[in-house]
């Protein structure tokens, strides 16, 4: 199954996702970095031009240092250059570990290979040939450019009332119900009812009542405490018990 993210398994057997970034985001990030560097070098050249040839020498050194160490320093100390930060990207090792100085230096020195013949053509081809969108430098250094994950913000739900689901739900099902409530502003009303109706075996309601019911379950799953009049069914598990697994499963 095609996906943009890959799962990395830790020795503890826990999976976490990395989302490698493709050519578009990286091209835009590169453009931003390029413009920043260009601006700095031009400014230096203008200022240093009063020193004549010595000024040219210094500007060339500044150009050299910027060209080769700008990405390295930003990647090592900030995980991303300003352009990457703008596109919300970071550079990490293949296993998701923070990038080290040597890998960063290697992946940036190998830009000389990626840039061939001109304008990063080889890098682009390499990116499209690699499942994790790695250019040659990334392959050599064992690094990957991924999307930085922003913590998901949960908006407060308008729906009053709390209702425990009548059956234990799997984590992805709980997530889907919470998402259903969270995305109320994006989904049209008709579509929400249609979606809620699919879950009739869960709540035995129809249309608007079903939507309300699901929203209340989302409230419960988000840990909202019941209001003055708790709407809870007699056979529901206690709120204190773990909802991620059915009570019988715990030993």
């Amino acid at each position: 199954m095609l996906d943009t993210s890959i799962a990395i398994e830790t020795p503890e057997g826990v999976d976490f996702d990395l989302t490698p970034a493709g050519p578009l985001s990286r091209a835009l990030a590169y453009m931003a970095d390029f413009l920043i560097r260009l601006g700095v070098v031009l400014a230096c050249m203008i200022v240093l031009s009063i020193f004549g040839e010595a000024g040219v020498g210094i500007s060339l050194i500044i150009y050299f240092v910027l060209e080769w160490f700008y990405p390295v320093l930003f990647e090592v100390y900030r995980a991303a250059t300003p352009g990457k930060k703008w596109m919300n990207l970071i550079v990490v090792h293949d296993d998701g570990a923070p990038i080290t100085f040597s890998s960063s230096l290697l992946r940036n020195l190998l830009r000389t290979a990626d840039i061939l013949p001109v304008f990063y053509a080889l890098g682009l081809v390499s990116m499209m040939c690699n499942k994790q969108f790695k250019r040659l430098g990334d392959i050599a250094a064992g690094t990957v450019v991924v999307r930085a994950r922003r913590p998901e913000t949960l908006t407060a739900l308008a729906e009053p009332g709390v209702r425990a689901p009548s059956v234990p739900l799997k984590p992805e099902e709980q997530k889907a119900i919470v998402q259903f409530a969270q995305r109320a502003g994006v989904l049209s009303q008709a579509r929400r009812q249609e979606l809620a109706n699919i879950l009739e075996p869960l709540h035995h309601e129809k249309d608007e009542a079903a939507v309300v019911n699901l929203n209340q379950m989302a409230n419960y799953l988000l840990g909202k405490t019941p209001g003055p009049e708790p709407v809870r069914e007699p056979f529901a598990p206690e709120p204190s018990s773990s909802i991620a697994q059915p009570p019988e499963e715990r030993q």
């Binding site: 994006v186 075996p201 869960l202």
Partner: peptide, 18 residues
């Protein structure tokens, strides 16, 4: 995003399970 296809898929699976 606009039509919640991902939700539909999981809801259908859950409905089936129930």
């Amino acid at each position: 995003t606009l039509e919640g296809w991902d939700l539909e898929l999981i809801f259908r699976q859950l409905g089936q399970r129930l």
